[in-house]
Design a binder for these strands. Structure first.
Ligand SMILES: NC(=O)c1ccc[n+]([C@@H]2O[C@H](COP(=O)([O-])OP(=O)(O)OC[C@H]3O[C@@H](n4cnc5c(N)ncnc54)[C@H](O)[C@@H]3O)[C@@H](O)[C@H]2O)c1
Ligand SMILES: NC(=O)c1ccc[n+]([C@@H]2O[C@H](COP(=O)([O-])OP(=O)(O)OC[C@H]3O[C@@H](n4cnc5c(N)ncnc54)[C@H](O)[C@@H]3O)[C@@H](O)[C@H]2O)c1
Lengths: 214, 214
DNA sequence: ACCATATCGATAGTGAGATATCGATATATC
DNA sequence: GATATATCGATATCTCACTATCGATATGGT
């Protein structure tokens, strides 16, 4: 059924933007869109957009009109797995952890946080945004029993590696890492870093460059 | 004084990791490190590390011993501008906004949030994590008066573009965007997207690939 | 003092990803 | 119905980040 396509990482990361554009178009009653219009809106090259869409689309685009909006939406949602949700556990219910727990948009993107864990006694057993907070020692059992394969790390940097080890030991397949620490994990485990320090580095450099111009 | 080096974006984003490694080494009393050991620890190619460091280092590395830890730390901090802090304003004091306001690590990375803005009357005029929350209509005046050049967007997607326009109109030079919306801004304004949907896409695909293996 | 070797910098090679070009085709217009 | 054109897919080209290779050199061990 599925075309065996291997999208590049970058192409993959563009998909949510395409989806956003397509959904907006759909709302406006538009039935087909061209790669050029998408490209213009997202400030991308039109050939690039065409290649990306060709990779995940079940049907071809038509000359003059473009691609069918509804179909493309389905294709992308399918490809990104927005339909079969991924279960995850969150470790570290601090200010960031709470924000993540309360983020109702994740569902739309196929992520479902089933439980949270913390070491702080005063937080444990609370229910936050409808999710129960368990003591850390119950993590392994719960993850194994429920066959969870994503762990979200939102603990301070000094504990991040320990938590990662625990998650890996519990059979997790991927880690979403919000700490700034580079984690050491086995090769089969994916670590997706959400490193704000790296982003800040880009901001800083851009500003310096702008200053030098003037 | 400064060597006129143009690091690639990727190299730039690796710098915080190097810094982390170097600081840890320093704590342990290590005075010089080799590119190979850094590479091994961070799972990078050693030549890549060498090139990155050569680009920002004032002195060369020595055969057999490597690079001087203290000096490298200074060089990187200098390069990333951790010494002269960047002032920023935050727009949207919801659960994410609060987490960002309360994040005391930003200072270390050269970012200083000087004020926050929100439209919600019940939040306005509060002081959260030591930062005052102002009504949105006071943004322009304050940004101009204080010569702020970074705006952080943490409002729901549907308002993100409006806020971006306001920020741009106030003379901001860079936007740190936590919403999932692709913003339209003039060319001279940098938008650093912190798009969780793109990250989730990567996680999703990895999991599917892992499943297919078994 | 000598040699083995870890590390360096420089240069060349590779590969992923983005862009440019071109012929084909569906649709709108006259 | 003929014609113009926007859009498509395929192929070729270009770009640039990363990697591999190699000779040079400082340092530690014998
Ligand atoms: N606050 C932010 O805006 C922000 C943004 C991006 C990334 N981060 C990163 O996310 C992490 C958490 O940030 P925060 O601001 O929420 O910190 P926080 O101090 O508010 O929360 C940390 C939580 O982790 C818990 N914890 C500590 N050790 C634990 C362990 N071993 N197992 C389980 N739970 C443990 C603590 O009890 C606390 O509840 C940090 O690494 C930070 O760098 C924070
Ligand atoms: N919660 C998370 O974990 C998380 C993580 C990453 C990104 N995001 C994104 O960050 C944004 C905010 O998320 P949140 O969970 O904090 O939402 P939230 O609803 O908790 O907070 C949004 C805040 O923005 C304020 N606001 C609304 N319109 C505004 C305007 N025009 N000007 C100023 N303030 C305005 C609201 O009053 C509210 O305080 C969203 O775009 C979300 O997708 C959230």
């Amino acid at each position: 059924m599925n075309k065996k396509v291997t999208l590049t990482v970058q192409a993959l990361q563009r998909m949510p933007y395409y989806l956003q554009y397509l959904r907006k178009a759909k709302e406006q009653g538009i039935e087909s869109v061209s790669s050029t219009s998408i490209a213009k809106d997202l400030k991308l090259n039109d050939v690039l957009v065409r290649k990306d869409l060709a990779a995940i689309s079940t049907t071809q685009g038509k000359p003059k009109s473009g691609f069918a909006v509804n179909e493309l939406i389905d294709n992308i949602e399918d490809y990104l797995g927005y339909n079969n949700t991924m279960d995850a556990v969150l470790v570290g219910v601090g200010s960031l952890g709470r924000a993540l727990l309360g983020n109702d948009e994740f569902e739309k993107y196929g992520l479902n946080i089933v439980a949270a864990f913390d070491t702080d006694e005063s937080i444990v057993n609370q229910i936050i945004s409808g999710k129960q907070v368990f003591p850390l020692k119950r993590l392994k059992g719960l993850v194994k029993r429920m066959h969870i394969n994503i762990g979200i790390i939102a603990v301070p940097g000094e504990f991040a590696q320990d938590v990662a080890d625990l998650l890996v030991g519990s059979g997790i397949k991927a880690i979403w890492n919000f700490s700034l620490v580079k984690l050491k994990v086995p090769d089969h485990v994916l670590v997706q870093d959400e490193n704000l320090a790296a982003s800040l580095a880009k901001l800083s450099l851009h500003l310096r460059d702008e200053m030098e111009k003037n």
